[in-house]
Amino acid sequence: MSHIVGTILSLAGFIALCLAMPRHQRDLLGRALSEGGVCALRLTGFCLLGLSFLQATWSLGWAYGVISWLGYMSLAAWILILLISWRTQRA
């Protein structure tokens, strides 16, 4: 269960970071976001990644937590990359 929560948190964090980039805004949203929006997204993204780290270490202990967190980030990045390439292929 905590693996799923951790992966979802990482995925959400990566999505936020990804949307903070102009190129992805153009590809996925079709418009550019304001300076403030970008800043907020970036902050949210890093906070979510941090949250996923805290969640992992809190529920799994220090050693297991850190290594699991690395795994969540890999998995989340894989999912996101596949999502993005699927979206942009269709577009």
Binding site: Y64, G71, S74
Partner: peptide, 15 residues
Amino acid sequence: AGPALRWLYFLSGVG
């Protein structure tokens, strides 16, 4: 690593 974490290891290795 338990099963879930083992698969994550495996995926990272494939990467």
